[in-house]
Design a protein around this nucleic acid. Sequence first.
DNA 1: TGGATTATGTCAGCCATGTTGACTTAATGC
DNA 2: GCATTAAGTCAACATGGCTGACATAATCCA
Lengths: 180, 180
Amino acid sequence: MSEDDTSVEELPEPALPASQLHAFAELLFFAYRDFTGDPDIILKDFGFGRAHHRVLHFVNRHSGLRVADLLDILNITKQSLSRVLKQLIDQGYVTQKAGASDRRERLLYPTERGKALAARLAAPQLIRLRGALQAAGLEGEAAIRRFLEAMINAEDRPKVSAITNPTPLPGTHADKDETV
Amino acid sequence: MSEDDTSVEELPEPALPASQLHAFAELLFFAYRDFTGDPDIILKDFGFGRAHHRVLHFVNRHSGLRVADLLDILNITKQSLSRVLKQLIDQGYVTQKAGASDRRERLLYPTERGKALAARLAAPQLIRLRGALQAAGLEGEAAIRRFLEAMINAEDRPKVSAITNPTPLPGTHADKDETV
DNA sequence: TGGATTATGTCAGCCATGTTGACTTAATGC
DNA sequence: GCATTAAGTCAACATGGCTGACATAATCCA
């Protein structure tokens, strides 16, 4: 093999200079800052914070999940979760149901009220995302998906895939696919 | 004009169903979580937090900026910034210099020590970004840039562009473009 | 020149949300 | 029947946001 052999399937892909990578890092910072900014404002009116939003989101999108699942997804301690989860339950946004096969498990479901708040919080984020994906273009969409997946720790990717491409488990139900 | 007139320059771009947008939202959450995870671990060894990282990053990448610039970039209060900035200054990671034209301004510069820590914190993030951009492919790179820019509040985009595509101002100096 | 404004710093206190460690309760599994 | 597991709880602490009030020094302007 010659030294500058360039096989078909392995294009050299010129590595970006550090300054460009730094620019991407900064863009990601600002993008995430604004992505979370819209719901933050709404949450204030309810006396909730971003932590409540995260819990409500996952309970709403993946209803019937266990407390342990939520801990695993959010990467926080039981005590941290407990604080916000309790408030969501006490105020009627989330309900618990004992697991059918293992009655120690507490399966989490959004109430109607919870679904309504989740939808309201998600709305500006989905609008923002739709606009940004349109700005990226059709092929960009797939590239962005690959990019975001590759940003995730390799060992967590299967877990995340299971979450973002949900296989409806018995006990969970698929959401209707409405456009916001 | 007929109702289903589809002009050349305005392809319909089928709107994604909400469930796909939710998947992107979750991917962004996990991606950002892991993107910040690496430096968080390093920061612990120094008794610093993510707030210190943000300050050090911008001081390092845009040295010579004013306190007011930093407040504007980070979207936090003077008092919040002051707490972490003071620690960075006291411990010799950042220095201040009175502005040449307006001596009320305190221009911020990283020390050698600050540059070293910034580089160490950035290293795993740049590696992660480079890998993710490679996964996205060459054209993906441009799409991702458009996507991230479009995720930012429209009114902030000029400001952010000025930051990510820096025009070296008098008093600032461009960093050497080393690959990490 | 003197008063208003501006850039920055600081004190005090509050809130949200993360952490660790220890312990309880109820259900499960062997 | 006893160890393990899922979940909840109590207490204490750290980080990093926030508001409000005020101080200092430099600048700007009438």
